[in-house]
Design a protein around this nucleic acid. Structure first.
Lengths: 195, 195
DNA sequence: TCAAAAAATGACACATATGTATTTTTATTT
DNA sequence: AAATAAAAATACATATGTGTCATTTTTTGA
């Protein structure tokens, strides 16, 4: 595929992203995307076989953007505690965002497609997050900011808590108070006083 | 509806449960249940309007059974720590069960039906679990078994961790080691030494 | 035992999404 | 500018699930 193709592909993914943000994943049909992109049925099938393929591209885009944001925050010369607090605040914002349909869409996508558990994009995201968190904690420990005996375990624990909050936010709803409580809990676990 | 109707309804729910255990939620059609129950299409519609309604009944059944198990374990004169450890071990068993399709089905059901977050059966389950956990922790604190400043917050925290593990088990997979680590983490948080 | 009510059946009409195949339009190259 | 290739559009055939409804079977009770 030439230059033009990738450009159109990108256009489709970006347009589809909006559709997914409105309707989640499972309700979106190829027809919906066709209409949003103002192209033809056959035309879309030239680029993507199904909605799952398109959503995967959307996810990759999102991941890229998230990584960029994180990289930016790290590039500034901040302490480990600063970065951790910043990260948690960002998470909090996401968790409390009403109608976070893209997160919901991600779960729908998961369960609609029965992805392999060993190797899928979201496992990669999770593992990568754990690794970054681990490194952050290690740095904090070295600098005497944190106290922690098992950095890897703690990193994983933090991510599990956040996963729990994320799914709960989508299914049973969570209060700001509950999120704050969990953040304090995480920071206390590392002997960080400040909130 | 008379006696016979409820009996048949129960039969349908129990049979449908097996179907959901095999196929999850979203893949199951009314036809599947019709065939499993060996009744007619129209016959099934006499009792239930759709698969969601049937699955809801399955969930209620499951909740009832889980409650019974918990009640039994409490009825024995055990310490709070004993009960907590028992509970966590039970959770671990569930988390590591391969092909726990009923849990997966529950998530599918969630996302297929866009349940209200404020009031749904799984929120009730969660809240009830938090309450029981809180009481358990309080008892433990009173007996000098646990140390805890914020029983309610801790109870919620434990449940969030478990939720995180549950969704992770379904989506990205978890290792026994990771679960053990989380259990230790929970117990340490309450100053319980033993595992 | 038999008539009325209740329960169950299965065919049908409907709706919706999918993926393809043929045609038409647009772009490229000599 | 004509021929060729690439891209896009449209119509179609297919597949699948849903819910209803007229009909048949079973149950009940007088």
């Amino acid at each position: 595929m030439g230059e033009k193709s990738t450009q159109k592909k990108k256009y489709i993914v970006e347009t589809a992203r909006k559709v997914f943000m409105e309707k989640g994943f499972k309700k979106v049909t190829m027809k919906d995307i066709v209409e949003a992109c103002d192209i033809s049925r056959g035309g879309l099938y030239l680029y993507f076989e199904n909605t799952a393929q398109i959503f995967l591209e959307v996810l990759k885009m999102e991941t890229q953007e998230a990584d960029d944001v994180f990289s930016d925050s790290i590039s500034e010369d901040a302490t480990a505690a600063d970065i951790l607090v910043l990260f948690l605040k960002e998470q909090k914002k996401e968790l409390l965002r009403k109608n976070d349909t893209l997160t919901q869409a991600t779960y729908e996508f998961y369960f609609e497609n029965n992805l392999p558990k060993k190797d899928n994009i979201l496992k990669k995201q999770f593992d990568s997050a754990v690794k970054i968190m681990e490194k952050l904690i290690e740095t904090g420990v070295e600098n005497g900011e944190f106290y922690c005996e098992d950095c890897k375990g703690t990193a994983r624990n933090i991510m599990f808590v956040l996963e729990g909050l994320k799914i709960s936010a989508q299914t049973i709803g969570i209060t700001e108070e509950a999120v704050d409580r969990e953040i304090v809990y995480i920071l206390k676990g590392l002997d960080v006083e400040e909130v």
